[in-house]
Design a protein around this nucleic acid. Sequence first.
RNA 1: GUCCCCAUCGUCUAGCCAGGUCCAGGACACCGGCCUUUCACGCCGGCGACACGAGUUCAAAUCUCGUUGGGGACGCCA
Length: 492
Amino acid sequence: MMSEVRLRFPPSPTGYLHIGGARTAIYNWLFAKKHNATLILRIEDTDVERSTKDSIDGIIDGLNWLGINWDEGPYFQSDFLNEHIETAHKLIESGHAYKCFCTKEALDAKRETAVAAKITYQYDRTCLKLSPEEKEANEKQNIPYVIRFKVPDGDGSVVFEDKVYGRIERTYMDIEDFVIVRSNGTPLYLLSNVVDDIRDRITHIIRGQDGLGNTPRQILIYEALGAPVPVFSHMSLTLDPKKAKISKRSHGEVVTVQFYKENGFLPWALVNFLVLLGWSPASDQEFFSQEELIEAFSLEGMNKANSIFNYQKDHPKFFTDPKALSINAHYLQTMPIEELAPLVKNVLQNEKLWDNAYENDKKDWFISTIDLIRSRFHVLTDFAGPGRTYFSDEYEMDPKPVQKNLTKHEKIGVWLGLLAERFESLPDFNQEETERVARELADELDIKPGILINGTRTVVTGQAAGAGLFDVLLAIGRDRVIARLKKFSAQG
RNA sequence: GUCCCCAUCGUCUAGCCAGGUCCAGGACACCGGCCUUUCACGCCGGCGACACGAGUUCAAAUCUCGUUGGGGACGCCA
């Protein structure tokens, strides 16, 4: 019987889900799907000081939104504290760990001295060398102690085969006897994480490269416990354009998943973008359905070099990485329109632009209109921004086209008033007729048709860009077009 | 200070493991042209990279060593 493949995503709930964490979750999820494995969500909430309920909710909400589902959990690390402590005591009994009575102050002093002298600091094993009598005396006096893992002696080393980075070796001498239980009796990450992974029978660990340094120490714990060591895969990190690690603290909202949810991203587009940050398929395919991505995914395609999340603060055109935007636009413009409609509904509802008729009497109009205007849109929120003019009579006038297409022409008010009349007397308000009439009028007035056409676009939509004008006119509808033109003409 | 990792266009990357088909391919961005009534639509084109230095070899982006640069870890955080 083949042994079960099990993975986990273990966020610590000290903030919102950020794109780096999401990327880790996505890779674990893809690997799990690909190998028919079990994915576990485990909340590592043992840092009581910083863990919050809001953060847990935010992380779960973010994962749900992205469509990343898990098979077990969420489990909470804090539920297993006793097991972690028991394990530490087992390690003492088996000679793999020992009590250390050194005070934090004494240790800090030693460390500072070493740093000042530019000497590498490592715990000097003072307490390992304690005689049985001294130990007993310390214990009788109830001197607080931490539990340290005893790294094997000699010039051996820990070696493991990372699925991404290859063979990694770390000599015992380079590893100090690390603390696994605090003096207040609570366990530390290195220990808890391993104990939980053993209990959860985790076989594959996919995590950030910042965990690479922990791996040799964790392997030592697995070995001391006689537990099978999982397969490790470390992945490159996501950096900002200055090559600093991204964090909510220094980068703000742009690095949170929530931000993309609020700014009109399609969840799958974000997944698609994120997965390409540090991974590539064997082909040069860039857009994937979920099935295709699971099929294509392989650790082989992981890039060892860190990648940059290329967003420029205050960029006039791109509010996040341009590639993310272009991937989102691609999905927005090509996805089945019936799938897009409810998402647009949601955006319009949030802006109080929704009309229930869009799902009944005006359904055909609604569908054809969003299909028409989406070709220029990049994010869902565009439907309520530049797209607002289709759903409301109150819309912004972009000053640029106003200047270029209206203000520049003294008599434009009169001309557009005339055009409105022609539209009014048209037996049939369709594409051919509206265009014919507009061109005829331009001819009579001896002006270029573009003047009338661009002026109309500006008045009717407030925008410089958009679909073909005569399609736009039909979408907005005869009555509203005429009313808007007349209103402008009267003001002009 | 110690240890670990990495290095191809501005960005994401292909190619590297099995050296020649690579004066290095794709995508996004940028620039130009075309189309057009407009445009962050579409089409066509352009710009643009093997960090550096040695070595191995008939041949190196690909293998080796070094240099430089970058990142990460060294906590009674996770």
